[in-house]
Design a protein around this nucleic acid. Structure first.
Length: 423
RNA sequence: GGAGAGAUGGCCGAGCGGUCGAAGGCGCGCCCCUGCUAAGGGCGUAUAGGACAAAAUCCUAUCGAGGGUUCGAAUCCCUCUCUCUCCGCCA
């Protein structure tokens, strides 16, 4: 959520920065709501003050044993008006909240202005895609040949966009998650956490906008709980409503969870294989940072995610998302894209974002600054990495002509020493 | 599932219809005293919002959440959430 003060003080400026995102801010609507709010609030508070004052007099009067009925009648005379005003104020506030709730974050000054993913900026490319002296398969065919990647059984169980992994491929999937967790906890200083896979609407609103993205989530029937689309939902909410000591920052958490996404609106997109599933595993990095340091933390966190790809020796590139492509809550996002020979393309495997105070304001997540005053923290997160897509990348990049898949050296300790997956 | 207890400020903890944004303590900050790593004293110390160009100031709201009763609610009533204790059940 944006700071309403910012809109009050510099509405045109905010509108301008949102325009870079392709969002048209209805400034007239805001001004109308604000004018209404101001008028109603002032009037309401005046009446409340009068009521409080008279009520105090009633108390004093009664304490002296006097008759207070005249005073009480005076309060009663305005009671209906006050009640109506209070309701009106609540309505206006709710409208303002609703207005604010669907406005995305403002992009950071360093974010390139653009309309679509085509305008994203490649900032570095690491590793060189292998050349193959045979016809490369995509992960679906690699897995099918091994008999260890089974979409048919998954469809029988739960329909489209699910997968069943078997044998070595299942273990490889587990190995990847273990490897990522170990690197981030042992080398990057993250605290491993295990969390609920369902969260309340309140948590969902803390990190995103339920009003806007409700359809992307799976909701539990008859309960106010949502399956998490990423560990960001539960983990970032650790600090909801908290006032942290300044010295505690930054908090760094790593969390391995399944992620559940309805993928509404992505019909026909990535229908083949396990690139876009209703359920996938992800190792998520979350940082709660001091505002002055959050952009350094973003570089650091992105580097942490990249480390995994470097160790796995998978070629990748890092993109700065343009203003038209960054997520709702984000002020700046780096996407890490891994090379998939089966598609001859780089595909997203991690998304690292600084949300500045946008989520913190929704969550009321604060710390005590140098002056001892509560100040909103900055929140960041990034995939480190999406386990399912990393599995895809390994299967495709490490495939051999005979249909086997070489196990990346760093994963062999997690695979009982196996260096090659065969049928 | 059954029975009971509770949720108050950074923390502990009083208050159970009026002068309570809330005693007291701890912690923290500033100052004073003290010839010494102890102790004592004074003052201050919630958050959000609004009025004002701004400061000072004033006002409003907030004692788990949401409703209600009342001239007036931290205090009474209802609903919900969470925590704890005991019994039952259970991976």
């Amino acid at each position: 959520m944006l700071d309403i003060q910012l809109l009050r003080n510099d509405l045109q400026g905010v509108a301008g920065r949102l325009a870079d995102r392709g969002i048209t801010l209805d400034t007239a609507a805001f001004e109308r709501l604000e004018a209404g709010r101001k008028a109603v609030q002032t009037q309401t508070q005046e009446l409340q003050a009068k009521r409080n004052q008279l009520s105090r007099q009633v108390g004093q009067s009664k304490a002296r044993g006097e008759d207070a009925s005249a005073l009480m009648a005076e309060v009663n005379a305005q009671a209906d008006k006050l009640k109506a005003l209070e309701q009106e104020l609540a309505t206006v506030q709710a409208e303002l909240d609703g207005f604010l709730a669907v406005i995305p974050n403002l992009p950071h000054a360093s974010v390139p202005v653009g309309k679509s993913p085509d305008d994203n900026l490649e900032i570095r490319r690491v590793g060189t895609p292998r050349t193959y002296d045979f016809k490369v398969k995509d992960h679906v065919d690699v897995g099918a040949a091994l008999g260890q990647l089974d979409f048919d059984t998954a469809a029988k169980l739960a329909g489209a966009r699910f997968v069943v992994l078997k044998k070595h491929v299942a273990r490889l999937h587990r190995a990847l998650a273990q490897f990522m967790l170990d690197v981030h906890t042992q080398e990057h200083g993250y605290t491993e956490v295990y969390v609920p896979y369902m969260v309340t609407a309140e948590c969902a609103n803390g990190v995103s906008s339920l009003a806007k993205f409700k359809d992307d989530l799976f909701k539990l029937e008859g309960r106010d709980l949502y399956l998490i689309p990423t560990a960001e939902y539960p983990v970032t909410n650790f600090v909801r409503g908290e006032i942290l000591a300044g010295e505690q920052l930054p908090l760094k958490f790593v969390c391995h969870t399944p992620c559940f996404r309805s993928e509404a609106g992505s019909y026909g997109k990535d229908t083949r294989g396990m690139l876009r599933q209703h359920q996938f595993d992800k190792v998520e990095l979350v940082q709660i940072a001091h505002p002055a340091q959050s952009y350094d933390r973003l570089e650091e966190l992105t580097g942490h995610a990249e480390t995994i790809l470097k160790r796995l020796e998978l070629p990748y590139r890092v993109m700065t998302l343009c203003t038209g492509d960054i997520g709702f809550s984000s002020a700046k996002t780096y996407d890490i894209e891994v090379w998939l020979p089966g598609q001859s393309a780089y595909r997203e495997i991690s998304s690292c974002s600084n949300f500045e105070a946008f989520q913190a304001r929704r969550m009321q997540a604060r710390f005590r600054n140098d002056k001892g005053k509560p100040e909103l923290v900055h929140t960041l997160n990034g995939s480190g990495l999406a386990v399912g897509r990393t599995l895809v990348a390994v299967l495709e990049n490490y495939q051999n002509a005979d249909g086997s898949v070489t196990v990346p050296p760093v994963l062999r300790p997690y695979m009982g020493g196996t260096d090659k997956i065969t049928a």
